[in-house]
Amino acid sequence: MEKVKKPIFEGKVWAERIKVTIISAILAALANMIYTWRLPNLEMVSFFEALPGVGIMVGIVFVSYLLYDLLKGVLPFQVPSILFVAIITTLLSFEGICGGFATYMIDNFNKIQLLPLCTPILSYAAISVGRDLDTFKKQGFAIICVALITFFGTYIGSTIIAEVVLRISGVI
């Protein structure tokens, strides 16, 4: 039997990407509205005011997926799609490279707070968390402790090195 070659652009994958990215963006704009409304020291950013910002975000994400798919078979090593998103946005955020667009993008991103962007992620995680709950119970207390210590160890390890190097190099 002949081996079926996977197409570069897979229909199901792209449908999910487009759907979830756009819905997350709408949810983030909504979360942002409630979040800024609830906080006394921030002025409320309405749903519609947030739309240009999340719109640019969605655009960047789609371009990144496109590049990811196109380069998947070409590059000799694996590059996670998240890295494309990070690199493209970083380049766009330099005024020296993108001029007025950089300013426009950052102005609009500033209307959207960091935390409301996390709430859609964690809400999807909340829905699927039940799947793992049974396995989780069986694993017992030991594995929970060890996993939590790994988070602590990673964090404190990086903090200590950063603190020492920042002090030696005179940044702080």
Binding site: V58, V61, I121
Partner: peptide
């Protein structure tokens, strides 16, 4: 849905 967060974070680098 993580991707949108990454754009917000990375935009502060420039």
């Amino acid at each position: 849905s993580c991707m949108l967060l990454i754009t917000k974070m990375s935009s502060s680098i420039g």
